[in-house]
Design a protein around this nucleic acid. Structure first.
Length: 459
RNA sequence: GCCGGGGUGCCCGAGCGGACUAAGGGGCUGGCCUUGAGAGCCAGUUCUCCAUGCGGGGAGCGCGGGUUCAAAUCCCGCCCCCGGCGCCA
């Protein structure tokens, strides 16, 4: 029988779980509440099952009774019992609904090596790669993000020239994007990509798909909309509000990431143990409301309502799921190294994990014009948190029993963000943007695609 | 969208108002048998609660309601799949 780690922990040592909840910055009283409901629910269930047992016995007796009077007496007895049961059943179904609700509020357990903290400034860098271009005026900032953590990162000091930010590069220098017209017709955080840069978007997707399929990931183009019930299995309520666009008049939601429909491949659809691990790489557009983002990153295409993303997803056996977290991180690193984008990997603090993750690595790319490492990818170990909600199971080969799967998800590469990073990191003093070598082989077959560089629009 | 057919366990498939156990088969796992393989025989193979040593219950037949002492089976609503017609990139 599937056992959910969180429930098991609440039943066996609630204090330990409460400690984890506290580390996430969540009020630990929810643990007590959940524990209370769990106890109440099980007690009520026990009582009702006893009543049902009696009623069943009575009812079975009726089918055998031949004496008509006796039969009538039994039926009236059963009726009375049935009335008593009806009100109890109602109580139970209410309790069960509350139980389910309560369980869905609970965060995942926390891995021991997740740093405790509540701001992404406290995320702990674990390694750096590349030789970032650092503007002289940004040097202090750069050192804060490297040396403060004990890393001596080699860098290229840029002095005597400016580096244009990705938003201005796109719209003013290259003139290959138009967010103003997009805002007029669709709203802010939408964009048109126009001209040569469109090929770059496709090339990035193809490149990442190529890398990941060579590593044994199966490519998938998933549904771009999901039913609400399925989506609830993948995310928590607050992500729902901030991320999800609903389709009017239908029980459908636009996906915020391919992770969700990839997960849904096992929704109520048991996998076979021998098919694990099942490694998938999805390509999809992603739609996000960005409701909680306020005015952050309002310029350009860094934070937008719609973009393309290559996503890694693994259904893993509970016994060895942790190793895939590291594997997926190094896959994404390989993609970024191929693109020549300087990055760092950070271990995300407990307070910034979100309910589903037990541990999460973010990968952040260096943006010279901003003087900051900024998130481009995020890889999470989810354990059985989604499995419990969406009933993701595998059939154990040894006895055919069902067990919860472990799920892991991680960015392969988001195209729009990769483009912004390229616009800053591959920028030449004359306004040209060089194209990373790794992308060239995907551009080459396209007759009208650029091959070596994106050229600024002539004045 | 309209008409017709249909959703039963990991898979196929019977059952269409009471047999305390959802028939039967396939697959998978374990055991017996065998030098080994195969065949054969036996057992297990939805979820959940209590006990967790054996064991004892309850629920479950696409989803949600209803009728009945009793529903896979009858009634109502919804979802999905298949075939035909229409429409369409």
């Amino acid at each position: 029988m599937p056992k959910w780690t969180v429930i098991e922990l609440i039943r066996s040592s609630p204090e330990r779980y409460a400690e984890m909840v506290k580390r996430r910055g969540i009020d630990p009283s929810i643990v007590n509440e959940a524990s209370e409901i769990d106890k109440k629910y099980r007690e009520a269930l026990k009582e009702i099952e006893q009543l049902r047992k009696d009623h069943n016995a009575l009812s079975r007796g009726i089918s055998k009774a031949s004496d008509e009077n006796y039969r009538k007496e039994m039926i009236s007895k059963a009726k009375a019992l049935e009335e008593k049961l009806a009100s109890k059943e109602k109580e139970l179904s209410e309790l069960e609904a509350r139980w389910r609700e309560e369980m869905k509020r609970l965060p995942n357990v926390l891995a021991d090596d997740v740093p405790t903290g509540f701001s992404d400034e406290d995320n702990v860098p674990v390694r750096f790669w590349g030789k970032p271009k650092v503007l002289k005026s940004m040097l202090d900032e750069f050192l804060k993000q490297t040396k403060r953590w004990g890393f001596d990162v080699e860098y290229e000091l840029v002095d005597g020239r400016e580096i244009v930010g990705h938003a201005d590069m796109l719209e003013r220098v290259l003139q290959m994007g138009d967010t103003l017209q997009a805002a007029k017709v669709a709203g802010s955080r939408f964009y048109y990509l126009i001209g040569d840069i469109v090929w770059l978007d496709f090339a990035i997707s193809l490149y990442a798909l190529d890398v990941l399929t060579r590593k044994g990931f199966t490519p998938v183009i998933p549904p771009y909309m999901l039913r609400t019930e399925v989506l609830e299995g993948a995310i928590d309520y607050s992500s729902f509000k901030d991320m999800i666009y609903k389709v009017e008049g239908e029980d459908l939601n636009l996906i915020g990431t391919a992770e969700h429909p990839l997960m849904a491949l096992a929704y109520d659809n048991p996998l076979r143990e021998q098919d694990l691990p099942l490694k998938l790489v999805g390509w999809s557009p992603c739609f996000r409301r960005e409701a909680g983002a306020g005015n952050r990153d309002i310029k350009g295409i860094f934070r937008v309502h719609q973009f393309h993303k290559i996503e890694q997803f693994v259904f893993a056996h509970p016994s060895d799921s942790w190793k895939y977290l590291e594997e997926m991180v190094s896959n994404t690193e390989e993609i970024l190294r191929g693109l020549g984008l300087p990055y760092r990997v950070v271990n995300v603090v407990s307070g910034e994990l979100g309910l589903p993750a037990a541990k999460k690595y973010d990968i952040e790319v260096w943006y010279p014009a901003q003087g900051r490492y900024r998130e481009i990818a995020s890889i999470s170990q989810v354990l059985d948190w989604q499995a419990f909600r969406a009933n993701l199971t595998y059939l154990r080969a040894s006895d055919g029993k069902r067990e919860y799967l472990h799920t892991l998800n991680g960015t392969g590469i988001p195209t729009s963000r990769a483009i912004t990073a390229i616009l800053e990191n591959y920028q030449e003093p004359d306004g040209k943007v060089l194209i990373p070598d790794a992308l060239k082989k995907y551009l080459k077959p396209i007759e009208r695609a650029p091959l070596d560089e994106l050229k600024p629009r002539k004045k």
